[in-house]
Simulated assay, not measured.
Amino acid sequence: MLVALSDRPYNDLAGLIAYAKDKGRATIAVAGINQEVLVRQLAQEYNVNLVPIPGAGAAEAMTSALGGHVDATTQGTLHVAQIKSGKMKQLASIIDRRVPYAPNSATLAEQGSKAEPLNSHTMLITPRGLPDPVKTCLKQALDEAIRTPDYKAQMDKFENEALNLGEEGNRDLNARLADFYAKILAKN
């Protein structure tokens, strides 16, 4: 998610873009190359100086934001407690959907951006040539496990949601993302 301290003078992507144009730039602490790519996409799309500030991970990015050293940060889940405490606000969902803990925070696409949303998935990968009966059994067991109350409770604990894209869905997602990042990183 794209988040900022609650006292910042912007509440959404448009506000952050206007702030950056007015001030000449806005700094955004990021925890990974995919987040840096996203910030650079937004800078190019809106013709504004958005400066990604890479760090050693999400905790460092959060510390930079909480300390007021940057104008915003991209986060996975560390920001949720800060939002609940009132210290931070979410400017945009940088994944392809709104999230349960911030249902009023629109996605980048809903806010008019064409930037590629981030994706984060946990995948079960098996060796090539797995016998069909074993593959079918694993697919069924995974689907059942994802729908259990215990797994839902675990996902709720992490402010996340369980999705099962299935074999084809994962293959399609990985192919699309591999193509996207190959193209975007080749330009840089």
Rank of each mutant, 00 (worst) to 15 (best):
N164T: 05
G67Y: 02
A58S: 08
V39D: 00
Q90E: 15
G15C: 07
G76Y: 10
N119P: 14
Q35F: 09
I184A: 13
M1R: 04
E45Y: 08
A153P: 04
N174G: 15
G15Y: 06
T77I: 12
R8T: 06
G166R: 01
A29I: 04
A20P: 04
Q82W: 11
R8F: 05
D143H: 01
L177F: 12
P54E: 07
E167C: 05
N174D: 13
H69K: 13
N160G: 15
S105H: 05
F180P: 05
T27I: 09
E45W: 04
A175G: 11
V70N: 04
E60I: 07
T148A: 02
Q44T: 10
Y19D: 02
R98I: 14
A182I: 02
K89S: 10
L118E: 04
K187S: 14
K89Q: 13
M88Q: 11
L42P: 01
S113P: 12
L108G: 06
A18V: 03
A58Q: 09
G57L: 05
V99F: 03
A182D: 09
R128A: 15
I125T: 01
N119K: 15
F180G: 08
A65M: 15
T77P: 13
I17W: 07
Q35R: 12
V99P: 06
T73V: 10
L5G: 07
S64N: 15
R40H: 02
I53H: 03
S93T: 09
A109F: 11
V39A: 04
E167D: 13
P9C: 03
P131L: 01
G57C: 05
S6K: 03
A58Y: 09
N11H: 13
A65N: 14
N188E: 15
D22H: 04
E116A: 13
R171N: 11
Q140V: 10
V3M: 05
L124Y: 10
P103W: 10
A61V: 00
Q140G: 11
A61W: 01
E60G: 09
A56N: 14
K89D: 12
M155N: 00
G76R: 08
K139Y: 11
D22P: 03
E161R: 00
L16G: 00
L50M: 01
N11W: 08
N47F: 08
D22R: 00
L66G: 10
D12Y: 05
V39Y: 03
R176S: 09
P133T: 01
T122G: 09
E168W: 02
L177N: 11
K183Q: 14
N34D: 05
K187Y: 10
A65Y: 14
T136F: 07
Y10R: 07
N49G: 02
Q154V: 06
A4E: 02
I146L: 03
N34E: 10
G76M: 07
N49Y: 02
A178D: 14
R40S: 02
S64L: 07
V134L: 08
F180L: 06
A18D: 03
P103C: 13
T107A: 05
R176M: 11
A141F: 10
V30E: 00
I28E: 00
I33N: 14
L16R: 01
A141W: 10
K114A: 15
T74C: 12
T136A: 12
T73L: 08
